[in-house]
Design a protein around this nucleic acid. Structure first.
Lengths: 341, 341
DNA sequence: AATAGTTTTGCAAATGTTTTCATTTTTCTC
DNA sequence: GAGAAAAATGAAAACATTTGCAAAACTATT
């Protein structure tokens, strides 16, 4: 009641109240050095009085950047991505962008739809997770000449610049570690490999390291299980039930490894005395496990930051970063693995 | 080269190619029933040929909704919020909105800035986490008549509608459970209560339940520790080192409870035989712990969905949902708590 | 106090849509 | 096949800004 028109204030209202033209108000936002200090004062006070808030939509149609970056993820609520989302979003915010977030639940055609939606919103760039995307999605981004980047995994041959780790290397590191500890009775607990490029490349890496060292994983010890602690736990109980049990279990990721550790604990088997266990990912929590989990760290924070820098470079100065950056994974040895007896 | 003008296609280009007026193209998007099927065909083919993508920014300046909802969180990368973000975003996506996400790292003035930014982007609504926000933030939202909602906790007296659980009730449930099991030597491991409304209300609830049952927590057993598994673990080692140790430990959240469990495991104390342990939150993983963690579930999924429904109601039909919805927390008894000996 | 140079400001066009209203085209009825 | 009614389309104004250009207002110089 007391003065401020409750109707939405626009730049014209501000101009009127400050007794200047709209152009001057606009300039005072975008090129403050071009307007006299005293006029700027008047304008600022009018802005405050009216509670005016700039309309980015109106700017955007002038070809001005929207200041948003679309981030399209499979899902948010897995530790694996939450960390990445956090660091990426923090890093782009620092550069003045805001994240437009959408999740597709591992459905590639939904991912395409969401990409379209991002383009409708005129995001300045798009970030996708992983290397596998629908043909249409790539086409769309190319055709619209939209700066885009792939997060989490890196491959030189990807169709877009990618920032992340190499899953095969991650698998190789773990495979080599376990084999070098002298284990020969090795089992693998992985998510379904089919259609999961992440998991299957890790597995390939493990196999490569083992083969080089003259080991192999017998078919019966190659376990596939959904991405969940509880099913990994259940599978583990099956795995160790036979008296002919492995003395090392290599897991496709930390979540599965947690499940395996619980399964072993329940069976009163000691880790690492009876069985060595390894994960991949170094999720929050793995460090504090009892025993601490030997794993490979995929440095989510570094990836998020590197990617943020890369894409804002692409946006602000059309600098294409070649085919991205390889952020090396790192073996982290903790208490859950020990030399074979 | 082969036909498609690489310059950004607008609605006018489409109209020209389809030999109709821009109005008709616009109509064919927004009121397809008003345009003849054959013209629609022509238009669709022109759209495809040019790779035209609608410009929501241009629509938005007509007062049309932007189709975005601002979600401002303290941080993404804690299990606690990731689940909530996922369910909220999924639920609003289902209603045609996209999430504009920003994180402030528990900095309330940064939260205010982010809220402003959301308003600049002309989001259709804003969702904040928790009940505690800067005065300015509330003012801003009110003054701009922006539909807004608070997630995670509910209070009838909050300045905005809130959807979530009541932390005091959550604490009460756990306190009652532990006391009713017959425990009298009870310790509490909580995050710093000062300036943390969530934690302190939970603690109040615990105290209330205990007092009603004639118990109390001695000062020396009231432990404050940062939100992290490792520090809870360290604190636990201190706590049980004295030979006069508690036989039940009530934790302010599941993450701390995990730390406590690890600490006890390391000390070779058996849960629940030697000590009962409880959490609050029922985070992913608590179910599969060895032993399973007794806790109070704050149903993130329900909260996200309820909140999504509430805010889209506020947006699409100006229905204000009173002061929100209380989503009741639920005691979940698992193996980590047992009757006192 | 006139001139030239510089700094500030305003006018008007442009941006990519939607929408109201008027006009044209089609369909129906007899 | 004329007239009325209904359906489909187009013209133009509106939306909230930015920006190129020209005009106006200052400053400095003589």
């Amino acid at each position: 009641m007391s003065g401020l028109k409750s109707k939405k204030a626009d730049i014209i209202a501000v101009a009127k109240l400050a007794r200047v033209s709209p152009s001057t108000v606009s300039r005072s936002f975008n090129h403050p050095d071009l307007v006299k200090a005293t006029t700027r004062k008047k304008i600022d006070s009018a802005i405050r009085k009216l509670g005016y808030i700039r309309n980015r939509a109106a700017q955007t149609i002038h070809g001005i950047r929207s200041g948003t970056i679309g981030l399209i993820v499979p899902t948010v609520d897995q530790t694996i991505f939450a960390e990445l989302i956090q660091s990426f979003s923090e890093a782009v915010e620092k550069r003045g962008f805001t994240i437009l977030l959408a999740s597709h639940g591992y459905n590639l055609s939904r991912e395409y739809e969401l990409t379209r939606k991002m383009l409708e919103h005129r995001v300045d760039g798009v970030a996708l997770i992983g290397l596998e995307h629908a043909h249409d999605t790539y086409e769309l981004l190319e055709q619209q000449a939209m700066p885009a980047i792939l997060l989490w995994n890196h491959s030189d041959t990807a169709r877009l610049p990618s920032v992340g780790s190499d899953n095969e290397t991650a698998g190789y590191l773990i495979g080599a570690h376990v084999a070098d500890l002298g284990h020969r009775r090795i089992a693998a607990v992985f998510p379904p490999l089919d259609g999961n490029e992440r998991a299957s490349m890790r597995f390939d890496g493990v196999l490569k390291a083992l083969t080089e060292r003259g080991c192999e994983i017998p078919q019966k010890w190659q376990v596939e299980t959904p991405y969940s602690v509880s099913s990994a736990k259940a599978e583990t109980e099956r795995l160790i039930n036979s008296e002919d049990r492995p003395d090392a279990i290599i897991c496709g990721n930390d979540v599965l490894a947690w499940g395996v550790l619980y399964g072993l604990a329940k069976a009163r088997l000691s880790v690492p005395d009876d069985v060595s266990v390894t994960g991949i990912g170094d999720f929050k929590g793995s460090k504090d496990f009892e025993p601490g989990l030997t794993t490979v760290r995929i440095p989510a924070k570094t990836i998020g930051e590197t990617a943020a820098e890369a894409i804002s470079g692409m946006i602000t100065s059309n600098v294409t970063t070649g085919n991205g950056t390889m952020v090396p994974p790192e073996l982290i040895v903790r208490a859950s693995s020990a030399p074979a007896r």
